[in-house]
């Protein structure tokens, strides 16, 4: 069951990623981001990262995608202004390079995963001492607010700085 869901989600992810990259009009790229994020969320759920999956859906599907769409509408590119992106030669060379990169990473993933790792991966799901399931919001909260508290606070500072920077940059006439 989970196997079938994984295959479907993986196919959806790869297909929509290819469409995101290859569409000439960025509006279509943003539209194809939605099935990509849905497939990614499915895979996170299958990996028992349920809280991560919900955050992925909220932040990417809810915030980042809308911001991209908003910017596309704001700068109002007319279709005839969009020039052809790549010549045939550069398209071929970059596709070849990306294929080589994928092949190298697949080779390393194939070599690097031992049977021991697969056994640990398959038998993963344990309940924690407070009765929380692995990957749930309770089991994330303890390490996040105890051990990783300083990075957590630094992330909030980063987001405040990014917000201020975005407002300043788009307000000022440079």
């Amino acid at each position: 069951m989970s196997d079938l869901a994984f295959i479907v989600a993986a196919v959806v992810c790869v297909l929509s990623a290819g469409l995101i990259v290859s569409r000439k009009n960025p509006v279509y790229s943003v539209v194809f981001m939605l099935p990509f994020f849905l497939g990614m969320t499915t895979i996170f759920v299958l990996l028992n990262a349920t809280f991560l999956a919900s955050i992925q859906m909220i932040v990417y599907g809810g915030a980042i995608l809308v911001v991209f769409l908003f910017v596309i509408m704001l700068i109002n590119l007319r279709p005839e202004e969009l020039r052809e992106d790549f010549s045939m030669l550069s398209w071929f060379i970059s596709a070849l390079a990306a294929g080589l990169l994928a092949a190298t990473m697949a080779l390393f993933a194939n070599r690097g995963t031992t049977n021991d790792m697969e056994v640990k991966f398959a038998s993963a799901i344990a309940t924690r001492e407070h009765g929380a399931i692995f990957g749930s919001i309770e089991s994330i909260a303890y390490p996040l607010f105890e051990k990783q508290m300083i990075p957590f606070e630094l992330a909030s500072v980063l987001i405040v700085v990014a917000t201020l920077g975005a407002v300043l940059l788009s307000k000022k006439r440079v």
Binding site: M1, S2, D3, F6, I7, A10, C13, V14, A17, G18, I20, V21, I43, V45, L46, L47, N48, S94, A95, A97, A98, G99, L101, A102, M105, A106, A109, N110, G112, T113, M117, E118, F121, A122, S123, A124, I125, A126, T127, I133, F134
Partner: peptide, 30 residues
């Protein structure tokens, strides 16, 4: 104590890593 996935077939560590590599390469291509 497996809750969701049964760890058979393609849903294993290797499959996830290869999928991530393919998506990363597509992004790098873009």
């Amino acid at each position: 104590f497996n809750v969701i996935a049964d760890g058979g077939g393609l849903m294993n560590l290797k499959g996830c890593l290869i999928l991530a590599g393919v998506i990363f390469s597509i992004g790098a291509w873009g």
